[in-house]
């Protein structure tokens, strides 16, 4: 089985996010980047298919050379090869189009993408990709088993789970549940050294239209200071909730 895992290069969740140029550009200064957590759950599940079923795992990213350390980390975790599509990832449709080209060329059986990236949270790439390559699609996927060309996937639905059967080729939008957080792997020394010897292929991007363009960004209003109210001063608490917080 040939697996393609789509990797987004996103700011670490603990990074302080800022914007520049009058809130039109993301400021990457001092920001640590990581594998998008939803993609990392998918990558770890792909490692399971590699180890248990002999799958071959390739990771792919749409991005400039700055994203290569993130791909190297995926190689250090155990992916067999990496592809970087050399263009900034600025729009869901164009990213899906670029990934579709690689997916078609490689004739992958299973494509694992995170259900959304934690930076722009578009949540559209996996579905668009499936449509562009005419593959089956399961979103919000929390479990996946593959037997020959048959797949059984469990997806999260409101308040419960749904299990579906489908066939390869398949695209999933994965998330936590594909594996648990405790299953996520930290690259060991041997993995880090092996990563250097594995292929990281850079392919040029194809001309693709962008269907949307970001105009500006806005951060949430900072939370105010915490006010402590004595436990026996209910009147003051009610007054603050009513007149200041305006929640009652």
């Amino acid at each position: 089985m040939k697996i393609l895992v789509c990797i987004s290069h996103v700011p670490d969740t603990t990074s302080k996010i800022n914007f520049t140029e009058e809130n039109t550009k993301f400021d990457s200064n001092g920001v640590q980047f990581v594998i998008n957590p939803n993609d990392e759950f998918g990558l770890t599940r792909a490692m399971w298919f590699k180890e248990k079923q002999g799958a071959e795992v390739t990771v792919v990213n749409v991005g400039t050379s700055e994203t290569e350390p993130t791909l190297r980390k995926a190689l250090a975790i155990g992916a067999d090869g990496a592809i970087r599509i050399n263009t900034p990832a600025t729009n869901s449709f164009s990213v899906a189009k670029q990934l579709a080209n690689v997916a078609k060329d490689g004739a992958y059986d299973l494509i694992i993408a995170g259900r959304e990236s934690i930076d722009y949270n578009g949540g559209m790439v996996p579905g668009m990709l499936a449509a562009l390559i005419d593959a089956n699609f399961v979103n919000n996927c929390i479990n996946l088993d593959v037997e020959g060309s048959d797949a059984k996937a469990t997806r999260e639905i409101d308040g419960g789970k749904e299990t579906v059967s489908t066939t390869l080729p398949l695209v999933i939008g994965g998330q936590k549940g594909l594996v648990e957080e405790s299953d996520l792997r930290i690259p060991n020394m041997r993995g880090i050294m092996m990563a250097r010897k594995k292929p990281l292929t850079v392919v040029e991007a194809n001309e693709t239209s962008k269907e949307t363009t970001s105009i500006s960004f806005e951060k949430p209003t900072p939370k105010g200071a915490v006010k402590l109210v004595a436990s026996d001063n209910i009147d003051e608490l009610v007054n603050l909730l009513h007149n200041e917080a305006k929640v009652i």
């Binding site: 290569e68 190297r72 980390k73 690259p187 880090i192 990563a195 250097r196």
Partner: peptide, 14 residues
């Protein structure tokens, strides 16, 4: 090098 930096991140995480 890039490998050193990857090791540092990996070690910090560990």
């Amino acid at each position: 090098t890039e490998e050193h930096n990857l090791f540092r991140k990996s070690l910090q995480h560990f």
